[in-house]
Design a protein around this nucleic acid. Structure first.
Lengths: 349, 349
DNA sequence: CTGTTAGCGCATTCAT
DNA sequence: ATGAATGCGCTAACAG
């Protein structure tokens, strides 16, 4: 039978309360008692039961804040689903989830929302960083105020965020380049669209793609690189419209192009190509795995994407911060980069 | 605040015991009481707390049997890790895991082990099917004896297994064929090795691969298809030796071959090519994602594999049967096929 | 058929 | 500094 805190107390010749104080490092324990308890724990190989612990902690009312930009219907829908699943699970642990969204990627909106969550006295926050450096200060300030922040999808490595849950973004671009190489057999003319470049993850993707193409595919020529960063603060419909225009412009300007790579909004890019009614094949490589993308890929408008599982990542992020708040230590095993998925028509679920 | 069973009882004007009987369909409840309870549950939007439930069920001592062939060091090592993780989690729920392994894929060994687990009075079993049809009868008999069986990795669809956790194997072969198409640019001579063909998953992989090549890549010629089913019942070292010989034979017999596809044991196939010291490039496409395969892929001996995450699958399978034993119902959301991963050098973690 | 009671293992009081 | 008591939400056993 698994030893309980009771067994440990008996073995050590102290009360359950004392064992608990040692386990949770509460102090107020004589060094003599502490030694005996630790010996007993060792001897019996005691591990605390997370279920019982969670149940007992029920009344503590932990609050976790979640903040993300609710802009791309398809992509964030799956994040939202993950949040709902986590919520259902954490509900029964007496944990409250305060979910906030912004209408765009403006880092000032993010900072405002973070302020509000701080006022609500949350015990921790999960969010993505809206800007490669403008959010560092606020995140570090939250850390100093004893509110740990876990970033996901896009990191803020120079801030004092507790942890980052997400992929290696540079490598994500490298993999995309490799798929471009496969699909084109290493030969042809490419146009590149860099979207959201002040999101760290996007900039890194772009760099990864470019460097891989340059180093490994000398016969793949990049005709031009477009930049769609300035639209970042607009609402989604404007953003989409701008992308549509850009793609239409590209198709007209580059009649000799064979392929398009876009660091994000792959679904919209595919729609734009589709709507253009051109009668030559444009190979499209991009990112993410959403319902929209799967649909367009099945119909041949997207050739491959490189993605991370945003649904699982948000769940991992929430679990990570919950455990950190509850137990005070990081699960180091959860910190390695998330796997990079490759999506082609054939392996759509 | 979340409603508890107590709130429901108060709302319905009955005792907690009665609510519990309704919740767990224990019978012995008047239809009048049942109606009132259900109304109260509806009204309060009551959901039972899985943590509290698990804690209370602690004394019940549920036993789950797990059975798998511990043959390929690298592949099954990760299954084993998943089992250990699940064990640690279930330990604190008072669940006992009886883990059994066989030394090969002989279905008779499997049936013997299943018999033994039945004698141990397990409440459910997780295993893979060792043979496309010879295990159906035993699995169905277990079901009749009220011991549900969940298959993973390789299914027994014609048996009364409770559920299958794993990928669509046919599609797995299709994706492999697509990767072959990418890598060869749709042109060249292929040799195929069909391993373990009386495992349903392997046979389906092979069929998926062949059909995709035939239908989509007319310029890819399959020179020959080797069959390595008969070695299935041997121990691993014999199996590997046989594969080494086969690959050496293939390389000699087909000097015009460009690529090799193998339905399993991709690591060994790569080792065999490596050891042969031939000085032309043989493209190798196979399956799985193991430490061995990642190492050989990084060094260029494997070009791509299609895999399922065996680590997550065993965990999902164990959780599924645990919940079924505990709550008596299947989590239908867990039943869709697992995702098919594509591994190339660039997206190795 | 129904209500009551006693834990499951742990964390937090409140006494001492 | 330590021990004892209470309860988290639920289930099982018992009493009626």
């Amino acid at each position: 039978m698994k030893p309980t805190i009771h067994d440990v107390a008996k073995e050590a010749g102290v009360s359950r309360g004392t064992v608990d104080r040692v386990l949770n490092k509460k102090g107020s324990v004589s060094s003599e008692a502490e030694r005996k308890v630790n010996e007993a724990i060792e001897k019996l190989n005691y591990k605390r039961s997370p279920v019982a612990s969670a149940l007992a902690l029920h009344k503590k009312n932990i609050k976790i804040g979640i903040l993300y930009p609710d802009v791309d219907h398809f992509f964030w829908k799956e994040v939202n689903k993950g949040i709902r699943e986590a919520k259902a699970r954490l509900d029964s642990l007496g944990v409250e989830l305060l979910v906030r969204t912004t209408k765009n990627y403006d880092y000032r909106s993010q900072i405002n929302c973070l302020d509000e969550l701080q006022q609500q006295k949350v015990n921790g926050i999960v969010t993505m960083s809206y800007h490669y450096n403008k959010t560092n200060e606020k995140i570090s300030a939250l850390y100093e105020a004893n509110i740990p922040v876990v970033t996901f999808l896009s990191d803020a490595p120079d801030s004092k965020r507790l942890a980052y849950i997400g992929v290696n973004s540079h490598q994500s671009g490298v993999v995309a380049a490799k798929m471009m190489g496969f699909r084109t057999a290493g030969n042809g003319n490419i146009v590149v669209i860099g979207v959201h470049r002040d999101l760290l993850c996007m900039e890194e993707r772009l760099k990864g793609f470019m460097s891989k193409i340059e180093s490994e595919y000398p016969e793949l020529k990049i005709l031009e690189t477009y930049n769609m960063t300035e639209y970042r603060k607009e609402e989604e419909k404007f953003y989409k419209a701008a992308l549509f225009e850009t793609v239409a412009h590209i198709l007209e300007k580059h009649p000799d192009m064979d392929a398009l790579y876009t660091t994000s909004m792959t679904g919209s890019a595919a729609q734009a190509i589709k709507n253009s009614n051109i009668n030559r094949k444009i190979i499209l490589i991009g990112h993410e795995n959403t319902e929209e993308i799967r649909g367009l890929m099945k119909r041949g408008y997207i050739d491959a994407t490189v993605y991370e599982n945003q649904h699982e990542e948000i769940i991992r992020a929430i679990d990570l911060i919950y455990k950190y708040i509850k137990d005070g230590d990081l699960e180091y095993s959860a910190l390695k980069p998330s796997p990079l998925g490759i999506l082609i028509k054939e392996n759509i679920e």
